[in-house]
Amino acid sequence: MDLRIFTEPQQGASYETLLTVAKATEDLGFDAFFRSDHYLAMGSADGLPGPTDAWITLAGLARETRRIRLGTLMTAGTFRRPGILALQVAQVDQMSGGRVELGLGAGWFEEEHRAYGIPFPKERFGRLEEQLAIVTGMWGTPPGGTFDFEGTYYRLDGCPALPKPAQGKVPVLIGGHGAKRTPRLAAQYADEFNIPFASVEDSARQFGRVRAAAEEAGRKPEELVYSNALVVCVGRSDAEVARRAAAIGREVDELRANGLAGSPAEVVDKIGRYAAVGSSRIYLQILDLDDLDHLELIASQVQCRLD
């Protein structure tokens, strides 16, 4: 089981804080550092000191880390034109020496679009499908060639499709709970399918849909990686678990039901249940970015039992 660290910087984090967490991620032996792509805090968080841009952050981290994979869960398709996104991701991949992954979604948080003057079209899923075709098409265009595309929402004429990613093709993540269109898109474009904040039972159901869609598309279902994203709250004692839950404004019982919470042994056991339904990678949503002891505990008491 691969464990990856997943952060939500819109809730309040500077680049320096994210750099500290990314370096801890690397030093403690985790597989990757991922971040959300949002510009507005959610819930009761004040968002201070203000938002950071996902791909600017990852560009910086690409130069200041050496081993860990870097990526987004998920880049909002509404934030960037697909041709420019393909260029940006390829450039950051070059800056990292080939360690970048792209999670791409349709975009869903309407309030942040209003706050920053970003259009929030109704046909976001149709746009996402064309965006995936453009991004992967540009990366797959042979050097010296050009990429053309004419769809309902986007048109590219004579695009040089440069630069190219250092790793050839950047792994693409697609995720969500949708029963029909999401599995179809994953089967067509994804290297990894991720389901966020889902129970073991719902994960099994959605993984099954994606596997069926892959077979229908002529792909072997095992070609895809199947993963979960879950909030994590681990403690050496009940008091420590409660303290960490309170620090992120959550209840312990709710976290145990909907995430990975409790003692290291409890968390290892629940991860095993996700593994049993096909998950081979978990993105651990870390909401208190100042609690580096939490990361150390997970590395020493959870990750070591999964190797």
Rank of each mutant, 00 (worst) to 15 (best):
L3M: 12
E16H: 04
L284C: 07
V89R: 01
T20Q: 15
G140K: 02
A22S: 12
L260Q: 09
I286D: 05
G103Q: 01
V277L: 06
D53I: 04
Q303F: 02
A214F: 04
A59H: 13
E112R: 08
I298G: 02
Q188M: 13
G249M: 07
E130S: 05
D238H: 06
L128M: 08
E222T: 14
R35F: 13
F149L: 00
P171D: 00
G47S: 10
G235P: 00
G29H: 11
G178R: 08
A261R: 06
L224V: 10
I118M: 11
K220V: 08
D2F: 11
A161S: 10
G126L: 00
T75E: 06
A13F: 03
G105Q: 00
D288L: 08
M42K: 09
C159T: 01
I271T: 13
R81N: 13
V210A: 10
L85S: 06
Q167P: 02
R80Y: 09
I286S: 08
R211D: 12
V100I: 14
P142H: 01
K164M: 01
L87S: 14
S279G: 07
I195D: 02
K180V: 13
E201A: 15
Q88P: 00
S263H: 01
Q188N: 12
P196V: 04
G168L: 01
G43A: 10
L173M: 06
K23C: 13
V277I: 12
H38V: 10
V302P: 05
